[in-house]
Design a protein around this nucleic acid. Sequence first.
DNA 1: GACTCTATCTCGGTA
DNA 2: TACCGAGGTAGAGTC
Lengths: 221, 221
Amino acid sequence: MRLIVARCTVEYAGRLETRLPEALRLVMVKADGCVAVHSDGGAYKPLNWMTAPNVIEDNSDHWVVRNPKGEAMTITFHEIFHDSDHVFGEDPGLEKDGVEKQLQELLAASPDVMEPGLTLIRREHYTALGPVDILCKDTAGNTVVIEVKRRGEIDGVEQLTRYLVDLANDPSLGTLRGMFVAQSIKPQARTLAESRGIVCVEVDYDELRGKQSDKWTLFNQ
Amino acid sequence: MRLIVARCTVEYAGRLETRLPEALRLVMVKADGCVAVHSDGGAYKPLNWMTAPNVIEDNSDHWVVRNPKGEAMTITFHEIFHDSDHVFGEDPGLEKDGVEKQLQELLAASPDVMEPGLTLIRREHYTALGPVDILCKDTAGNTVVIEVKRRGEIDGVEQLTRYLVDLANDPSLGTLRGMFVAQSIKPQARTLAESRGIVCVEVDYDELRGKQSDKWTLFNQ
DNA sequence: GACTCTATCTCGGTA
DNA sequence: TACCGAGGTAGAGTC
């Protein structure tokens, strides 16, 4: 990674056009050639950037960075205060815990957390409009269409509603019910869901995880 | 801006939990206290970050960065290879030349690009649910409710549908039609739109811009 | 302050 | 490869 601190101006022409007046900034060049221009302010996001793959044309006082899509960023250097290069090697990468996928897995493994007596039909049931997160059967024999979100907002309810409308055309599923499951559900989303006969369920992720590890322990005893 | 190149491990606990195994990385601390950890690969986005406002607790071999929301990022330094500090001063900031807004302006100026005979009623028509991009009248006297996007995706169709439902309560508008306009429209969005009787129109931005400059030339001759 | 919508969204997955 | 959806989305604008 090359780090350059310099007074510079930057222009970008691609999906939109931008200009950066002359100022002191950090120019960061990563191993794969991607270039980012950072100011010292606010955001973690750079002011301008160009992701790989790209080609850096180094004209010493100014660089032109081009990508295959025809976008170009021009950095003009007026005065350089720092220029260093560092070899990092491969990064082992980020491990994540607590994303929607995991929540879905935990719920599919313990459907009765959402409603007593629920049994799993399948996860990721594909429809023309996209995959339904979880399909279950309830004690009365209805098919329960379940949408899982980390945060329950209005677009999740819309998504579930589309699935319900679409799946109503499949007579093999029998009577349908909708269920909206999230760690927390916004009042607006809850109101909309309930006005459409969709049941809302809030679940606790840590509790779920605990339940899962209990099961695991039990299973291995 | 402080730049530290070091072998480090990072943990984040907040909206989710993440771990970064020991590796060589860049730790960037900006003037407002926000901290970002960059690898040498791919993205302009840092692996981990903490935006301002936050408090950095410096225990020399490890930092704990906390924000008021109760999130925390812990950076443990194992070996430091570079550590420098730079004073940037205020950045004059990024100047942008538009995308969707400009597309909207161009379409409002030439409504017949979307459908022959369309005439503009108004732009940015405010409803309880948010502003309708463009309102037009068609040759049959219907009011056409138009949603403009750069890329036409399914949530844009939902947005337009909400406006249509809401505007149906306004008798002064007469018969309503919906129109979804974008540079490109995804198949799923098109399917959903057409199932709701919403017309889909793809427009070419460069062509539109050309048309506009023709008009401009004509006007100034 | 809460809500809404945009983004050079980015990023990952999958058909 | 294109499409689709999640995101610690962030950030701007509006009510």
